[in-house]
Design a protein around this nucleic acid. Structure first.
Lengths: 343, 343
DNA sequence: GAGGCGAATGAAAGCGCTTACAGTGCGGTT
DNA sequence: AACCGCACTGTAAGCGCTTTCATTCGCCTC
């Protein structure tokens, strides 16, 4: 097994200094096109590729970014992973995942340990971590660059990307109203998850725009989980006929699936007797019966933007450009329909 | 922001050589307990932690292992991730995930590029990648250490871990037979996925043990996906009454969910008119209606074993110990029941 | 035509560890 | 009493890059 050529080999072969080769592989502009071409030729001929390990040590960076995540958000994370791939790869960065518990009281400490032991150069934060004040504060104090995918990030536009959760929740609510629904219930997610708070506001907006009034009986609190969806569904569907909502809009797909479960359990037909809508368009949304009407988030696009922002921040040459908002879209499936004729 | 202490600082402070500090942080046994204690004290006092970057360069290793995965298997991967965490962390290793397409004809080349550009020290292979001959051959040729989580790995016990897919599939089949089912159908997964092949053999075993005969009409081929599950379900449930299976055992939960979908669509009540069973106990299994009877795989345990084996291989001191087989278990939920009384 | 200036290139000093290899000190041999 | 061997500990040479600072070169200016 022959040994890999090092930068010195390339330099000698190309009859230039090591530094020049370094400039070429780092795309520095302080090299003439002719020299660059020549060096690139030698590099290709020798099959040279720079050692990440040496770059790490000499460059005082690990070429690693951290992607902490909470297990229940797994499908979220694979989208983020694939969306951010290209930007990271272009900058020779690798992603190190880190499973953690967003409910933990020592979350920030635990993340701090991770960040320092791996020595990641930056962190990509996804919900619900991206809305944890403790985590953000810790990263700021330790001067770890980060970018958030966070619905609540409008006030920090150079370090956050987001889709209009509020607007799309309003759109969904209006859509349900347009179908004739007058008693539209909403299931709030976990307080920790700023996204569901935004969605709740969007729900309120939607009601207002549809000339419907907000009624506390039809707003229940869940925690984003499937089980919470079941509980919320039961609560709402056990109301007496006149009060019972004809549509339930859950702020996560997982909870919407739970609502569906409760409906089946109680013999309520969906969508004829009840419309159900979710949020997120996770794989689950189209794997339940009936397939869920939901809101598709442009997650890969968001992740791509976030990754690009993080890389720009790490290069620290370019001025951070605020994110361009990406819009979500309604996905109408079989769980919603016009309201049943009145009795 | 004060600069981190380096190994030299520790050595000077402890009045020993750098090498001795190195031995201490690497748990070498060639140090007296007294020296070790003393050095450890200084390390703690100074808040020293060795630079991974320097270790990587000097130690000729990246301290990184690759975990390639295919998106549809996302939930699988988070389990593997958390199961392997402890072993990797103990060895100062980090996991670099890599999304890839197991159907791609250039899969092996693509993985090769990943492995070499990141310079991972080893690879952890999960299904269906762990059964790809091309991938295994590539890794062997390039002398990249790896461990597989692979149902087909019995013939390579020092580099594979597995749970008895065949045995548990047999158990499930027998269980269905015990419930009175005589026409038990099976949905095969993707040919690439060696696990589902094992499960099919288990199904055959189960039938034999239950004195039922294998009937080709009740064996349909899917590809592991939800949509394939729907198609298989439709095909089986549209048979005329006398031939129609009373139980369908799908070799993945995703396909079982599809079968459930088809049953709902065709108005077949589950579990009264039809029993449905899946395999894997993914989160989805308990999020569909009715909740799926399935087989729980001890994935975290497998991953832990695999990670430990990989680390041992990388240390290359310890003799590789073959995996101890971990057994799966039946999870009986609401999608299976005793067969309906004959008409 | 001398002086000067900016762009391209080079020399050398690390980055913070690991690892051959070399030493040092102690108890037991001959 | 000189010697040997073993167990610990130390010395110094890298690992393959980046980076600071110096140098060279070509060309424009007056």
């Amino acid at each position: 097994m022959m040994t890999r050529p090092a930068i010195g080999t390339v330099a000698a072969e190309a009859r230039v200094s090591i530094k020049t080769v370094s400039r070429v592989i780092n795309n520095s502009d302080r090299v003439t096109a002719a020299t660059r071409e020549h060096v690139m030729g030698v590099i290709r001929r020798l099959g040279y590729s720079p050692s990440p390990n040496a770059r790490r040590l000499a460059g005082h960076r690990s070429l690693l970014v951290g992607l902490p995540f909470d297990n229940p958000y797994a499908s979220y994370v694979t989208d983020v992973q694939s969306g951010s791939l290209a930007s990271f790869r272009a900058a020779n960065y690798q992603v190190v995942m880190h499973a953690c518990d967003s409910q933990s009281p020592v979350l920030a400490d635990e993340l701090r340990l991770f960040v320092h032991s791996v020595r990641v150069d930056g962190v990509l934060l996804t919900p619900p971590l991206s809305d944890s004040a403790a985590v953000i504060e810790m990263l700021d104090r330790d001067e770890i660059p980060f970018v958030r995918i966070a619905p609540s990030g409008r006030n920090d536009p150079t370090r956050s990307v987001f889709a209009g959760d509020r607007e799309s929740a309003a759109a969904m609510t209006r859509d349900l109203a347009t179908l004739g629904h007058r008693r539209i219930a909403f299931v709030i997610g976990h307080e920790r998850d700023a996204g569901t708070a935004q969605r709740y506001m969007g729900y309120c907006d939607g009601l207002r725009l549809s000339k419907l009034s907000l009624d506390a009986r039809w707003v229940v609190e869940g925690d984003g989980s499937f089980e919470a969806g079941i509980a919320s569904g039961r609560k709402l569907l056990r109301m007496r006929k006149a009060d019972r909502p004809t549509a339930i809009f859950a702020s996560t797909d997982l909870m919407a699936a739970g609502v569906l479960h409760a409906a089946h359990e109680l013999g309520v037909a969906v969508p004829t007797a009840l419309s159900v809508a979710g949020f997120g368009d996770e794989p689950l949304a189209s794997q339940v019966w009936p397939r869920l009407t939901t809101i598709r988030q442009p997650l890969q696009g968001l992740a791509q933007q976030a990754a690009a922002m993080l890389m720009a921040q790490l290069r620290r040459d370019s001025v951070p450009a605020p994110a361009v908002p990406v819009q979500s879209s309604l996905v109408i499936r079989q769980s919603t329909a016009v309201v049943a004729s009145r009795c």
